[in-house]
Computed example of a mutant assay.
Amino acid sequence: MVISKRVEPTLLTDQVFDMIHAAILSGDLPAGSRLRVRDLAEQVGTSVMPVREAIRRLEEAGLAEREPHKGAVVKNLTLEELIHVYDVRRLLETEAARLGSERVTSEDCDKMQTEYDLMRQAIAERRVIALLDHDEALLSILYNAAGNPVLAQMIRALWQKCRAYKIVGAQGSLDASDDDSLWRYQQDLITAARNNNPPAAAAVNEASLLDASERIKARLADQLAT
């Protein structure tokens, strides 16, 4: 009984954290949203204590921050910060693709193809969150094949940091009929993985993330010009 009493609050905090975390990643709580403790506690049906702890963990994860006169809000990266995030992503994900393509199995590649097909279906149906989820699932299969869980964990953390931007960027690409950036690179990555071709896999990820970085820099330049 003593153990259960000590564990239960932690489990409840985990559940509250997962619920708020999911709302942030889905865009239901977009960047800049205030995380009001009492409102959230009422929505999830708990006391304020697990909500406060969950918000503290979100801050530690870089998904929330404190603002004067507002309290905790969902963190919004500036375009300058996004450029730095994508620079680090390029370093890590290029290496993850190189390592993963050395060890990935044909069964893994089949799973990557399935995620790609589901991603293309989500694109056709204009389901932004689903397409991002399937894209990340595709990449995770390859990165996990590298056999370095720390590398995979760091990459997932960076995805979460820039999730709000990815949602906006993906929506913008969907709205532009001539923009194929949402699916242009993934099939080439699958081909490189099937061929166990590390240089090709690394090159695809390098090109993909450089393309994303250039788009962010262009938006920053436009912002500075206005």
Results as ranks from 00 to 15, higher is better:
Asp175Met: 10
Val44Met: 03
Glu60Ile: 09
Asn195Gly: 07
Ala54Trp: 01
Arg184Ser: 15
Arg98Glu: 08
Arg126Ala: 11
Lys75Glu: 08
His69Trp: 11
Ala137Tyr: 02
Arg34Thr: 14
Met1Gln: 09
Ala124Leu: 06
Lys75Tyr: 10
Arg163Val: 03
Thr114Arg: 11
His69Cys: 03
Arg90Val: 00
Asn196Glu: 10
Leu224Ser: 09
Ala200Leu: 12
Asn197Ile: 06
Pro149Cys: 02
Arg52Lys: 15
Ala122Glu: 02
Ala192Glu: 05
Leu151Cys: 05
Val73Arg: 03
Thr226Cys: 04
Tyr116Pro: 01
Ala31Gly: 13
Asn195Gln: 15
Glu107Asn: 06
Lys111Ser: 09
Ala31Phe: 00
Ala202Cys: 05
Tyr143Gln: 02
Asp14Ala: 13
Ala23Cys: 06
Leu182Phe: 09
Leu82Ser: 07
Ala61His: 10
Asp135Met: 04
Glu214Leu: 15
Glu214Gly: 12
Pro199Glu: 04
Thr226Val: 11
Leu209Asp: 02
Ala31Asn: 03
Glu59His: 07
Arg184Thr: 11
Ala146Cys: 06
Pro9Met: 10
Met1Ser: 13
Asp188Asn: 14
Glu115Asn: 13
Lys70Glu: 12
Ile3Leu: 14
Ala124Glu: 07
Cys162Met: 09
His84Pro: 00
Glu206Gly: 01
Glu93Tyr: 01
Ala152Gly: 08
Ser4Phe: 12
Val73Gly: 05
Pro198Ser: 07
Ala202Phe: 04
Leu131Tyr: 01
Leu174Thr: 10
Leu118Tyr: 06
Arg126Ile: 05
Arg36Val: 15
Ala64Gln: 06
Lys161Met: 10
Leu40Glu: 06
Gly27Ala: 03
Glu8Asp: 13
Thr46Ala: 07
Ala145Met: 02
Leu58Asn: 07
Arg56Leu: 09
Leu29Glu: 06
Gln186Ser: 15
Val37His: 01
